[in-house]
Amino acid sequence: MRVLHTADFHAGRNLRGFDRTPEIHEALTEIAALARSERADAVLVAGDLFDTANPSADAEAAVFDFFLQLRDAGIPGIAIAGNHDSAARLDSVAGLLGWVGIQVVAQPTSNPAGMVRTLELKNGEKLTVGALPYLSERRLVKAADLMGGDVGAWRQKYREGMGFFLRRLGEGFRADSVNMLMAHATMDGAKPSGSERSMQFDLTNSYTLSGLQLPPGAQYVALGHVHKPQQVSDAPLACYPGSIIQLDFGEGGEKKQVNLVEVEAGRPARVHALPLASGRELRTLRVDMDQVESRLEALKGFTGLLKVVVRAPAGTTLPGLKDRVLRLAPTALAVDLDAVQEDLALPELKREGLSLTELYERYWQEKRGELPDDLRAAFKDADERARIEVEA
């Protein structure tokens, strides 16, 4: 049996005002072509189909076109919701996607058997997948209540609660089938790319899973959530395929891939990385102020997307810097001063003591540039109303 494992499409991704959806659509078309050329019997999508809970029409078109391409090739699949997806939204189209051969598990059900899906393949083999969509601590407690768990105890430790689900899913494995687990979660020891939202929190607190918690009956664990391709467990074999394009400058230089898993019932799985060529290269150029023109001139043939970080003495202001850069590098999406070192050098640039509105303005500047006045006013108004409600 040959199973193609992918994850983290993030359709609808917007990078510094630049829509990455056309590149993601191209990558999904490439993956569908690989599924055909590599004779995949099934496709697993381990969450984060979309970048936001309310994706654009173009983002939905890219993902649904991918599933239609799999349907045209006669390749069934199973997809789960990630932390960026709206579980309710995916649930609402689960019936329609089922008509094209894609089973969707968007959120836990009161009957755990509903999270274990079996595909009957053309060659007569069976693929059983315990499908665990992303569960925040809040959602985990709610799901525990539905399934009769001890909710009070589960509030103590996320890991224990996730272990309960993993055990129940493992109970659904079958002796006459290839058995896999699919989850959107963070494993101990996983190495982030630097672009995953909230990943710094996942990797430093208790919201991670141990390889020891994975069901021993799983021949392969198809993971999503971490954007850097990697293997995180040997027994059972557990892998992240990573995101399908370089989504943020933190992923610059990474080679993207999908995983092709070869496996038979009762036998160890073998994983082959299939490289992806789609998506524009992201690159960060760090340059001294007096070398901006010469360094950008050397990158004249670069067709990817560029982030330029200009190193300058503390307190320097560089009027017209962005215009200078864009004249030489039209694909530059970001032009920043060396904020990391200046943040250490200048007390006034430290984040401690800043109001929420000031933090929001700093965040917006780092991501997109100058914060529009109307957004600043709206955020400040919302912040003040929230404080009044808390005080009341």
Score class of each variant (00 low, 15 high):
345 A>E: 15
313 P>D: 05
42 A>N: 03
218 A>Q: 05
123 N>D: 15
189 G>H: 14
5 H>T: 06
382 A>E: 15
264 E>Y: 02
149 G>R: 13
326 L>W: 03
75 I>R: 01
153 A>S: 14
207 Y>P: 00
172 G>E: 15
375 L>P: 07
24 I>P: 13
378 A>V: 12
88 A>C: 09
210 S>A: 13
324 R>W: 05
43 V>M: 01
53 A>F: 06
363 Y>A: 05
305 L>M: 04
197 R>I: 09
67 F>V: 03
3 V>H: 06
336 D>L: 12
206 S>W: 05
196 E>D: 13
384 E>C: 04
6 T>H: 13
61 A>F: 00
278 S>N: 06
306 L>S: 09
30 E>K: 00
23 E>S: 13
213 Q>D: 15
171 E>I: 05
299 L>M: 14
293 E>W: 04
197 R>H: 15
279 G>C: 10
207 Y>D: 06
149 G>F: 14
323 D>K: 10
5 H>Q: 12
387 R>C: 08
357 T>C: 04
204 T>K: 13
100 V>D: 03
332 A>R: 03
192 P>A: 15
119 L>T: 02
354 L>T: 14
203 L>F: 08
240 Y>W: 15
100 V>T: 06
256 K>M: 10
293 E>L: 01
108 P>I: 11
331 T>V: 08
23 E>V: 14
248 D>R: 14
322 K>P: 02
227 H>D: 11
134 Y>M: 05
94 A>Y: 10
381 D>Q: 15
271 V>K: 02
